[in-house]
């Protein structure tokens, strides 16, 4: 019987080893382990054995059975792996073939920059205020301390519907409306369309976008203005950017300043740089401490509160960021332009 078992084991070993597919393997299993299989026959013959021999042979049969099952299982896995590998090999693709592109929309470059600016200021505690683009003289001029006879009021610069109703020339009227309706502390930015009577060319557009900001609180100083704008500029252009405050004049702020940043194009290293004209500096902001007259007119007591305001042109900042040299591109909406951003 031992010899018989050994022969079965050998037969199984060879058969399994030579099996080339799952079907052959299954045949082997049935032939040896099936109900009518050779091993099963031996098991059936066990009853004829002596009491001493039976457990010994029984253990042997089990061993042979176990090793055969193991062999079958291993071979099965080997064959499955092989089949899978074949399948995978057959499924090879050229990954450099073109992608099937889903359509992805692109934000207008100005709006991307505006969103960045909004996020910086929201992070600094500012909210976003909006107001009408068609304004009356009070909000567009008078409440901003712009005197009755100021040249800005000339038709030359402002587009009018009637002598008292016009397209706002800055987003500053929003500041006035916010001050009228709210009590300090106020921290807002007011982005939006503004209008001037400028003929269209590479650097002028009768419609453009401004972002103005306003902070009103107790004891706000010019140092705070500098601090806020430095944080903003460094967030927008990076920590390495230098910021310079230069005296300037605006009717609605006193003291007033213009803000220059070190050239974001050449870093101040190119004397031929077209953007900074070799000066190393680019002007990007106007700002100042809100004029006491402006506070008073908007119902805020300048003895109790002070504040600062600032303003910048979105087109200019966007042109600087992307190296765009013609403002008209923003309003043409050519797909080949928009899809670059």
């Amino acid at each position: 019987m031992r010899e018989q078992l050994e022969a079965i084991r050998q037969k199984a070993l060879t058969g399994i080893k030579e099996a080339t597919d799952l079907k052959i393997l299954d045949n082997i299993r049935v032939e040896l382990l099936g109900k009518k299989g050779e091993l099963t026959a031996i098991l059936k013959g066990m009853k004829d054995l002596s009491n001493e021999e039976r457990p010994i042979i029984g253990q042997l049969v089990n061993e042979v059975r176990q090793s055969m099952e193991e062999m079958l299982e291993n071979k099965k896995k080997e064959l499955a792996d092989k089949a899978l590998n074949l399948q995978l090999a057959a499924e090879k693709i050229d990954v450099t073939l073109p992608a099937r592109m889903p359509e992805l929309g692109h934000r207008h470059p100005m709006k991307t920059v505006l969103e960045d600016i909004k996020n910086i200021f929201i992070g600094m505690g500012y909210s976003i205020a909006e107001g009408p683009e068609i304004e009356n003289s009070y909000y567009n001029f008078d409440a901003l301390n712009i005197p009755e006879e100021h040249p800005a009021k000339d038709e030359q610069d402002t587009l009018y519907f009637n002598p008292d109703l016009m397209l706002r020339t800055a987003t500053s009227p929003v500041q006035v409306r916010v001050m009228e309706k709210n009590t300090p502390p106020i921290r807002i930015i007011a982005p939006g369309r503004v209008y001037r009577s400028d003929e269209v060319d590479a650097t002028h557009s009768p419609i453009f976008h401004q972002i103005e900001g306003l902070v009103i609180d107790k004891n706000v100083t010019m140092g705070d203005l500098k601090g806020a704008l430095e944080v903003f500029v460094k967030n927008l252009y990076g920590d390495d950017v230098q910021v310079k405050f230069r005296p300037h004049f605006f009717p609605f702020t006193e003291p007033s300043a213009e803000v220059d940043v070190s050239c974001v194009i050449c870093g101040g290293h190119d004397h031929e740089c077209k953007v900074c004209k070799g000066t190393g500096w680019i002007e990007i902001l106007g700002c100042g401490m809100v004029h006491p007259n402006v506070l008073k007119m908007s119902g805020i007591d300048p003895k109790e509160y002070s504040g600062f305001a600032f303003g910048m042109g979105l087109e200019r900042i966007t042109m600087l960021r992307y190296g765009i040299n013609d403002i008209r591109l923003f309003y043409e909406n050519d797909k080949r332009f928009l899809e670059q951003f």
Binding site: I122, G125, P184, D217, G223, D224, K226, G227, A228, A257
Partner: peptide, 18 residues
């Protein structure tokens, strides 16, 4: 102007939101 010390005002903080 550049001699004026730069400060960050945090006296009465506000929460920015849309």
């Amino acid at each position: 102007y550049n001699e004026i010390p730069t400060t960050i005002s945090s006296k009465n903080p506000t929460v920015g939101h849309k």
